[in-house]
C-alpha cells in the first residue's frame, strides 16, 4: 500500500461538498498560482513552519539545530530554509516550547486514513456528508488517492475531490469511478494567460474536464475571482462558453483573500508577485448574475 503525504485532516468541513465532511489536505501541487493562499501545499515533502509571533526568542532551537540553519536575531530567529529542507532529524522541534516551530506534513497509508475518516461515519450519514480530498493537488499522489477513494467508497462514504485538474489523464480515468463529486477548479481559459499566472498551460486541465463531463460525472466548477486576472469580461465569457459546450450546470465563486500572505514567510516560500488587491473588477453579485443569465447555477463557495 502506498504512502500519502498530508498537511492536515479537518473534521466538520461544511463548505467543500454536501453535508458534514472530513477534509483531507494533500501535500504537493504542480501549479504555482500567483494568488495561492496555501503555500504549505506546494512542496510534496514535510516542511518546518516558523510562526514568528509565537517565538519568545529563547534561541534553544539555534543550539539544537544540527545544520546551522537557525540564526538568532533580535526578538526572533532567521531560518535558512535551503539548509533546513535538507534535514530529517528536526531536533529543533523538540526544544521549541512555544510551538513557534512546527512540522507541516506527515505520511500515512490509505488504511490508516480510512480509520480516521470512518470515525465520523454517523455524522456523514445524518448530514449526507463524506470525505473530500483537497490540497494541494490530490492528483499529484495518484496511487494513494486511488486506494483511499476505493476504501472510502467500499465503506459507504461519499467521496469528493477538489482538484485543479492538472494530472495524468490515466490517473483521472482510474479515480473517476470511485469519485462521487468533482470540485473542479477552472481559472483561466486562455492557455497563455493560464501559463503566465499558474506556471503551466491548461490543455491537460481542459482535456481532463472534457473526459469527466463526457463520463457524466457530478462536477461543480470552482472559479477563483482574482482581480484583473480571472475576473475579466473575456475570461468569464469563455468559461460560460466552455460550460455550455460540456453541458456543466454548476459553478461556485471563490473571491480572493489575502489571509494566506503571512504563511509564505512562515514556510520560507518566495512570493514574488506583488500583492493582488482584494477589490474585484466587478462586484461578486454582477458575476453571479452573468452566470445566472446564462442559465448556470452560481453561488459563492
Amino acid at each position: 500500500m502506498s504512502q500519502g503525504t498530508l498537511f492536515d485532516i479537518q473534521h466538520f468541513g461544511v463548505h467543500d461538498g454536501p453535508g458534514i465532511r472530513t477534509l483531507v489536505f494533500m501535500k504537493g501541487c504542480p501549479l504555482r498560482c500567483s494568488w495561492c493562499c496555501n503555500p504549505e501545499s506546494h512542496s510534496a515533502m514535510p516542511q518546518v513552519r516558523y510562526i514568528r509571533f509565537r517565538c519568545k526568542a529563547c534561541h534553544r532551537c539555534t543550539e539544537a539545530c544540527t545544520r546551522g540553519a537557525i540564526t538568532p536575531i533580535n526578538g526572533s530567529v532567521l531560518i535558512n530554509y535551503d539548509k533546513c529542507r535538507a534535514c530529517t532529524s528536526r531536533t529543533c522541534l523538540d526544544v521549541c516550547y512555544h510551538e513557534a516551530l512546527n512540522l507541516t506534513g506527515y505520511s500515512l497509508d490509505a488504511k490508516e486514513l480510512l480509520t480516521i475518516v470512518s470515525k465520523d461515519l454517523v455524522f456523514y450519514r445524518n448530514s449526507g456528508g463524506g470525505v473530500t480530498f483537497t490540497g494541494g493537488e490530490p492528483l499529484s499522489q495518484p496511487d494513494f488517492l486511488l486506494e483511499s477513494l476505493r476504501l472510502c467508497q467500499d465503506a459507504g462514504i461519499h467521496t469528493a475531490i477538489e482538484t485543479c485538474g492538472y494530472g495524468n489523464p490515466d490517473s483521472v480515468k482510474a479515480i473517476s469511478p470511485h469519485t462521487d463529486l468533482f470540485l473542479f477548479d477552472i481559472k483561466i481559459i486562455n492557455p497563455d494567460i493560464h501559463l503566465r499566472h499558474t506556471g503551466q498551460s491548461n490543455d491537460v486541465i481542459i482535456r481532463n474536464l472534457d473526459y469527466l463531463a463526457k463520463e457524466h460525472k457530478h462536477i461543480i466548477l470552482r472559479f477563483p475571482l482574482i482581480s484583473g486576472i480571472t475576473d475579466t469580461e473575456e475570461n468569464i465569457g469563455e468559461i460560460i462558453g466552455l460550460m455550455k459546450k460540456l453541458n456543466l450546470q454548476e459553478i461556485q465563486l471563490e473571491p480572493y483573500h489575502t489571509l494566506g500572505e503571512s504563511k509564505y514567510e512562515e514556510f520560507g516560500v518566495l512570493h514574488t508577485e506583488n500583492l493582488i488587491p482584494e477589490i474585484l473588477n466587478y462586484p461578486v453579485e454582477t458575476v453571479i448574475e452573468r452566470f445566472h443569465a446564462a442559465g448556470i447555477a452560481c453561488e459563492v463557495a
Binding site: 466538520f12 461544511v14 454536501p18 458534514i20 455524522f123 445524518n126 448530514s127 456528508g129
Partner: peptide
C-alpha cells in the same frame, strides 16, 4: 460562517442528531 444558510442549519441539526443517537 460554519453554519451559514439553510445547509448550515441542516448541518447543525445533523450534528445534534448524531450526538443524541450516541
Amino acid at each position: 460562517s460554519a453554519l451559514s444558510g439553510e445547509s448550515g442549519s441542516r448541518n447543525l441539526l445533523a450534528l445534534i442528531k448524531t450526538y443524541f443517537e450516541n
